[in-house]
Amino acid sequence: MNGIILPVDKPAGWTSFDVVAKLRSGLRWRKVGHAGTLDPMATGLLIVLFGECTSSSDEFMDLGKQYRGVVKLGVTTSTDDLDGDIISERPVNWDEVLVRNIVSSFRGEILQRPPAISAIKVNGERSYKIARSGKELSLEPRPVKIHEITVVELSCPFVTIEVTCGKGTYIRSIARDIGELLGCGGSLAKLRRTSIGDYQVEDAWRIEDALRVPEFRGQR
């Protein structure tokens, strides 16, 4: 076997590298990578590539992705999600019509400021390293494409959204910006990636199940 493409359902609390390391060791492959990082707090579809298939990483990165996220209004954090340190807490002036209109305004090609805690490089150094060193950092907005964004559920102070987007999009930034436009701040409380191109999370493997499949094993 020269390589395999394995869709995995990443559990919360694992980094994408944790998943790769576990599968590399357990399935005895030398060369293993993934096609699109998920934050530790996120769950859902992670495409893991083995052997010769690692060379196709860029092809997967270019595919459209779908997410379901829960935004908590009234709180801002250092990471734009609830894993970060709280920066501010403000009352939420709840208006369902306004919330829906603001969410819809993100549809299309937009300029998005990435979170400071991200893997984007600034002068050759990862931005999360700069931010965690205590230095001031504000990344420049960059164009991203939101193919579709809808409100799935409203329950103050939580807004559940479904987003279909192109590469380079940060759902944490969308959560932050929804809160800013509402004047109360916002952070991402939950995130699940549900699809990448034609790959669906319903068809993804749990890590522990994949480790038991002899056909997935490579050679060191």
Rank of each mutant, 00 (worst) to 15 (best):
M1S: 14
I4F: 15
L6D: 06
L6F: 14
P7Y: 08
P7G: 11
D9N: 15
P11F: 13
A12F: 07
W14D: 09
W14G: 02
S16P: 01
F17R: 11
A21I: 00
K22V: 12
K31A: 02
H34Q: 07
G36Y: 01
T37R: 06
D39Y: 04
P40Q: 05
P40R: 05
P40T: 11
M41V: 02
A42T: 04
T43R: 07
G44K: 07
L46G: 06
I47S: 05
V48K: 09
L49T: 12
L49K: 06
C53V: 14
D62F: 07
G64L: 09
Q66M: 13
V71H: 00
K72R: 15
K72W: 02
G74S: 03
T76A: 04
T77C: 10
T77A: 09
T79W: 01
D80T: 10
D80I: 10
D81Y: 02
D81F: 01
D81W: 00
L82E: 06
S88M: 09
S88G: 02
R90P: 01
V92Q: 08
W94H: 12
V97T: 15
R100F: 09
N101M: 12
N101T: 15
I102L: 13
V103I: 13
V103H: 10
S104W: 08
S105N: 08
S105L: 09
Q112H: 06
R113T: 14
P114S: 03
P115G: 03
P115W: 08
I120N: 00
K121V: 12
V122I: 12
N123V: 00
G124A: 09
R126L: 09
R126W: 12
Y128C: 00
Y128S: 02
A131V: 05
R132W: 01
G134I: 08
E136S: 14
L139V: 07
L139R: 04
V144F: 09
I146P: 05
I146L: 04
H147K: 14
E148P: 10
T150C: 12
V152S: 04
L154Y: 09
L154G: 12
V159H: 04
V159R: 02
I161Q: 03
V163C: 05
V163R: 01
T164H: 12
C165N: 08
C165K: 10
G166L: 07
K167A: 15
Y170G: 04
I171A: 06
S173K: 07
D177Q: 05
D177K: 05
G179N: 07
G179W: 05
E180K: 08
G183T: 02
S187L: 03
S187A: 15
L188Y: 00
R192V: 13
D198F: 10
Q200D: 14
Q200W: 08
V201M: 11
V201L: 08
E208T: 10
A210W: 11
A210D: 04
F216G: 02
Q219N: 14
Q219D: 13
